[in-house]
């Protein structure tokens, strides 16, 4: 202590720090002199607010436990049938951009023009509405603009949601997280193990009649070059041929081998009709063993 505790110094610090040694009594302010029935934030008001918070929390947890967070199936970029759907609070924007006068040639208006005016207006509201009046019914322009925006947002959201449900009905599809939940429930009721969404590819199906002469045709025709020597393929681009009999009939197999399909070439020139018949008969026998 360079200075010691000499009381004749004007400012006394705590130790060698720069914190002044205070001799004020630590008494909180008295709110009785404030206008109206003011009260202290801590602890008086915070306790009440905490009770409201607890009620909200209980309601929220009940909702969470009753509903459960949705989870669909793993993302598959090649899935062309999936109907995209943003979270509900983006729906108004999503729906808005579907209208012809803000999409296509006028997309600039849709992505920049209107949102810039709306969000810009909201951001700069205090500088646009500079009057002293605070009551909303005395601010007709600001209030009516806000009401109008609110109604439009609600309208767009509802329209978007209806559109989505119609689309789902038209394509006869059910949201994936519902499908998944339903399957899990069914499996649970039957006492089976709940199917895992991530292990779908692991269900290896054994080759049926591996010694059939058709296997040699498969090798000769170079099926194995793409569909692999064990015919397990290379999913998702190249499907497995094991178990193909469950997915395609003999006629469909003949059609596929003869004319090709997707990325698969035609084998009309490589194989004779007889060989194709022999091969597809064998392939149509490739079914998963009955459980």
């Amino acid at each position: 202590m360079a200075h010691g505790h000499k009381s004749n110094e004007k400012v006394v610090y705590v130790g060698d720090s720069r914190v002044k040694k205070s001799n004020h009594p630590n008494i909180p302010p008295d709110y009785t002199s404030y206008p109206g029935k003011s009260e202290a934030f801590i602890p008086n008001f915070l306790l009440k607010e905490w009770m409201v918070g607890c009620v909200v929390l209980v309601g929220f947890l009940t909702w969470t436990i009753a509903e459960g967070a949705p989870l669909g199936y793993p993302a598959d970029p090649t899935n062309a049938a999936f109907i995209p759907m943003p979270d509900w609070y983006f729906l108004f924007l999503y729906q808005f951009l579907k209208y012809p006068w803000v999409s296509g040639d006028y997309i600039v208006l849709g992505t920049m023009g209107v949102p810039a005016v709306m969000f810009g207006g909201l951001l700069l509201a205090p500088f646009l509405d500079t009057g002293k009046e605070r009551r909303f019914y005395r601010r007709p322009i600001a209030s009516s603009l806000m009401f109008l925006s609110l109604i439009s947002c609600v309208y767009l959201t509802v329209i978007s949601w209806n559109h989505y449900t119609h689309e789902m009905e038209a394509t006869n599809s059910i949201p994936e997280h519902h499908v998944r939940e339903e399957k899990a429930r069914e499996a649970h009721e039957k006492g089976q193990e709940v199917p895992s969404a991530t292990k779908q590819e692991d269900k290896a199906v054994a080759l049926v009649d591996a010694n059939d002469p058709a296997m040699d045709i498969a090798k000769k025709a170079q099926c194995v070059t793409c569909h692999a020597a064990d015919l397990k393929g290379n999913p998702p681009q190249i499907p497995a041929l094991t178990g193909v009999g469950d997915r395609l009939s003999k006629e469909e197999l003949v059609e596929t081998v003869t004319n090709g399909r997707g990325g698969m070439p035609s084998f009309k020139g490589t194989l004779t009709a007889e060989e194709i018949d022999q091969l597809t008969t064998w392939l149509s026998k490739q079914k998963a063993p009955a459980e």
Binding site: G72, P77, F82, T111
Partner: peptide, 19 residues
């Protein structure tokens, strides 16, 4: 990273790309 997540993000970024 389920389908809903994937395709919503794809659409969202496509919208941002049209700026």
């Amino acid at each position: 990273w389920d389908n809903k997540a994937y395709f919503a993000t794809k659409v969202g970024v496509q919208i941002a790309e049209s700026v």
